[in-house]
């Protein structure tokens, strides 16, 4: 049953990818709208799959890298659908949908969880920590992807190249506004995630901060975003610099999420989350 929902999710995300790429190339409104519906259908299946997993495991499924990917993909798809409902930056879908599809594929390929989740990793504050962090990641990921589009469009305009990308990408001010919205949404979420996480650590391990690679990297990313937000609000940093910082922050987040789990070891990496059988 679970694999059925997930297969449907994957199918829908790849379908939305195809439709949104077609929209990017052909610029027909119909493709975009069809893509949005397919994506929404995918998100519904995704939600059902997560609920079912949580039901079976009796806990929020976030103990392995694959499970965390699945949750993050859900957050990203949901955040994007909320975004385009309020601020239609349609072209972004051609980046978000394939990313979500790849993450769901990754979750399906990675080995499933062996054994039960350590009881240390259950509890209300931990769930708050996971949810806030992942939704924050999703919003900040959108800012990073929007930053890429901004840099492309800005380069076309500065260099006076009025070709393929120039015509298809939205205006600079739209892309810069995207950066602002995502930053002002994602930063508080990430902050909340960090605070709830350290409270949980204090509660279970007796210390707020353990100098774990994942914690350090997250703090670096948080600082990058804090600087960006501060400069945006006071000096009026925008445009290229804001886009570059958003991309930097996103790259650090990717390192945190992927690198710290695969290459670095620390108590925060998924390998330590399971009870040894």
């Amino acid at each position: 049953m679970n694999s059925l929902f997930l297969s449907l999710t994957l199918l829908a995300y790849f379908g939305a990818t195809g439709l949104w790429l077609a929209y990017f190339l052909a610029q027909r409104e119909g493709y975009y709208r069809a893509g949005a519906w397919v994506m929404a259908g995918g998100l519904a299946c995704h939600t059902l799959a997560l609920i079912q997993r949580a039901w079976v495991a009796g806990a929020l499924p976030a103990a392995t890298f694959g499970e965390a990917l699945l949750l993050f993909a859900w957050a990203l798809a949901a955040a994007f659908l909320v975004l385009i409902w309020r601020y239609p930056i349609k072209i972004l879908g051609a980046l978000v949908a394939p990313l979500a599809a790849l993450m769901v594929s990754g979750a399906l390929i990675l080995p499933a969880r062996q054994g039960a989740v350590s009881p240390l990793l259950q509890g209300f504050w931990l769930y708050v920590h996971i949810c806030l962090t992942l939704t924050g990641y999703a919003a900040l990921a959108l800012a990073g992807l929007g930053g890429v589009l901004y840099l492309i469009q800005e380069r076309q305009i500065k260099r006076k190249r009025f070709g393929f990308f120039h015509r298809r990408l939205p205006s600079l001010s739209q892309l810069d506004n995207l950066n602002y919205w995502c930053l002002t949404t994602g930063f508080p979420l990430l902050t909340g995630g960090i605070i709830s996480g350290s409270l949980f650590a204090q509660h279970t391990q007796g210390r707020f901060f353990s100098w774990d690679p994942k914690e350090i990297l997250t703090l670096i990313a948080w600082l990058i975003y804090a600087v960006l937000l501060h400069e945006r609000l006071t000096v009026g940093w925008r445009g290229r610099r804001a886009a570059l910082l958003a991309i930097c922050g996103f790259l650090v987040l990717v390192c945190t999420f992927v690198g710290a789990n695969l290459w670095l070891t620390g108590y925060h990496s998924f390998a330590r989350f399971l009870q040894q059988p």
Binding site: Q153, I157, H166, P170, S171, L172, S173, Q174
Partner: peptide, 9 residues
């Protein structure tokens, strides 16, 4: 047209 690509509106 170029102004629209910069300012949107």
């Amino acid at each position: 047209a170029m102004a629209k690509k910069i300012f949107g509106d």
